[in-house]
Structure formats: C-alpha cells, structure tokens
Simulated scan of single mutants.
Amino acid sequence: MIGITLGLMVVAVGTGAILVSRNYSSTISDATQLQQQAAYAFRVIGQQARQAGSLELNLATNSADGSLGTVDPSDPVGFAVKYANFGQIISGIDAPGATEYSLTLGQQNYFEKQVDAAAERTLFRDCLGKGGGKDADENYLPVISRFALRNNSLMCAGVASTAGDAGIPQSLIQNVSDFQVRYHIQENTAGGNPTIKKVNAAGVTNWGSVFAIEVCLDMVGDQSIDLPSTSKYVNCSGDEVSYNKRIHQLFRNVYQIRSQGILS
C-alpha cells in the first residue's frame, strides 16, 4: 500500500508539472505569435508610408522623351508631374464606417524599362503586393493602400479601378484589439520657432503639413491566462484597462513621410 501511495504521488506531481509546463509553453507561443504579426504589419505599413507622395523623377530633362542617349550628369533633375491625386497621398478617419478606412497612403505609380524585359514594368506595390496600371489617357494610376480594423483583423485594401476606388479588403494580421493612428504636424516654421504636435485625424486641418505618422497596435492573445482581476495595462488611448485574462501587447512605431514629391 505504501508503494502504491508513493507511486500515485509521483504520478500526481509529474502530471502537475506537465500541465504547468504546457501552460507556460502556450503562453510563450501566444506572445511570440503576437510579436510576429505586429512586426509584419509594421513592415507593410512602413513600406507604404515611406513611399507616400513619391513622384517619378526625370533624370534627363534636356533629353527628348524616349531618347536612348547617355544621360548627361550635368542635366537638371525634375519631377514628372502626371499626378493629380495629391489628396490621396495621406488621409485618415478616427472612427471609420464599414466602407471607410483609418489610414490611406498613396503614391504615383510609373513604369520603367527593366533589364531583360521587353515591356516597361512597375516595381511599386500596394499593401497587398499588387502594382497599378494605366488609364485610357496613359496616365499612371497611384498606388493606394488603405488600412482599417474590422472584427479583430487589420484589413488592407488596394485599388480596384482606374478611378482609384478601393478594392476588396483582405486581412493582413489577426488578434488586433485596437488600431490607432496619430499624425505629427510641424507648425510655426515661418517664424523660426517650429513646434511639433501630435493629433488625431480630426485635428488635421491641412494634410500637407503631416510629416510623420504614429501607429499603435494593441495585440490580444488567444490563450486564457490566470491574472488577478486588478491587473491592468495601458492601451493605445493611454487608459488603464483590464487584461480580461488575455495577453495584451502594445506596439508603437513612427514613420516619417519622406516623400520625393510635395504633399501640398
């Protein structure tokens, strides 16, 4: 009897250790997944933010269109200005509806000759990895990426038509509890005493004055964790809220709108 009792105790201790180890393993896996998803979302948003407002450069303004001659390094460089969509470079809505988006970033799309390719191609892609085309007048369409949070998924939509209308949104990442964007604006530059303020979309009076965006992702885990009911974390709005027995990880990143072109 003593041997059986000791054996059962060893089994019970071993089972408890396995269960605890499994819980820790699930929690670590949950946290790692959240970090990987947030990193991917930031890469996609960052790529579009850094390209926002870019315009095609004419590296040989003194040469005729289609010229195959060597480019003279002394030729001035200019912008090719077949772009009338400055309002699509950057915009946002704080509380978007079902067909609206929290953040929109756009750029001019143009085609160039590539090595070992007979036709001109574009290297620019939207948030879904798709490039643009041309309209009937041979004008290049802007590459537009739109982002919004829907049903705990960060959604992205590209362009569906030559008019630049939004396409069908697709999920970039899941497990998103909140997605917020703040806009950095520089003021008083003319007076020699510039100041920077951070506002939401409703506080932007001139989108051309936005020189950076701050993105906040509140990622929530799938696994239930045992936390005291008083445990709280600071969310994207700066408020202390309950974990609700789920892992919450907050990620923030700031992207400068370092466009080639002009915002306004």
Rank of each mutant, 00 (worst) to 15 (best):
Q36W: 10
A163D: 14
N206M: 08
G78H: 10
G78P: 05
V241Y: 04
Q108A: 15
K82Q: 14
Y140N: 15
A95M: 00
F147T: 02
L59T: 11
V204T: 10
H248Q: 07
E138T: 14
V181F: 03
A39K: 09
A98W: 01
I93F: 08
D222H: 11
G158T: 07
L103R: 10
T32W: 02
S224D: 13
V77F: 10
G167I: 07
G192P: 09
A41P: 04
L250T: 03
A157R: 06
V77L: 03
N139Q: 08
Q108E: 12
A80C: 04
D72S: 05
L103K: 06
I173W: 06
G129Y: 07
L128F: 05
G158I: 07
E138D: 15
V10M: 15
C236W: 08
L57N: 09
V176W: 00
A60S: 02
F42D: 03
Q35E: 11
S209Y: 08
M9L: 15
A119H: 11
Q88M: 01
C216L: 02
I247Y: 08
L19N: 14
A80T: 14
R258L: 12
A157P: 05
Q114C: 13
P142G: 05
L250A: 06
S54T: 11
N200M: 03
A12S: 15
S209Q: 14
A39F: 06
G261D: 09
R146G: 11
I4Y: 03
R252L: 00
D65V: 15
G14T: 03
E187M: 07
R246M: 01
C236A: 09
A12H: 13
S264E: 12
I2M: 13
T61M: 11
F86I: 14
Q51A: 14
P228V: 02
T104N: 12
K82P: 10
D165L: 07
L6C: 04
F211K: 00
Y183R: 05
D165K: 06
Y101N: 07
T104G: 12
Y255H: 08
G7I: 05
D116A: 01
G78V: 13
Q186D: 02
R121D: 12
M155K: 04
Y255D: 02
G203P: 07
G203A: 08
N235Q: 09
L19K: 13
L227Q: 02
N109F: 09
L34V: 07
I45P: 11
G208K: 12
G203N: 00
T122E: 06
Y24K: 13
F179D: 12
G191S: 10
S91P: 01
L217R: 09
G7R: 01
A12L: 15
Q180C: 03
L154C: 10
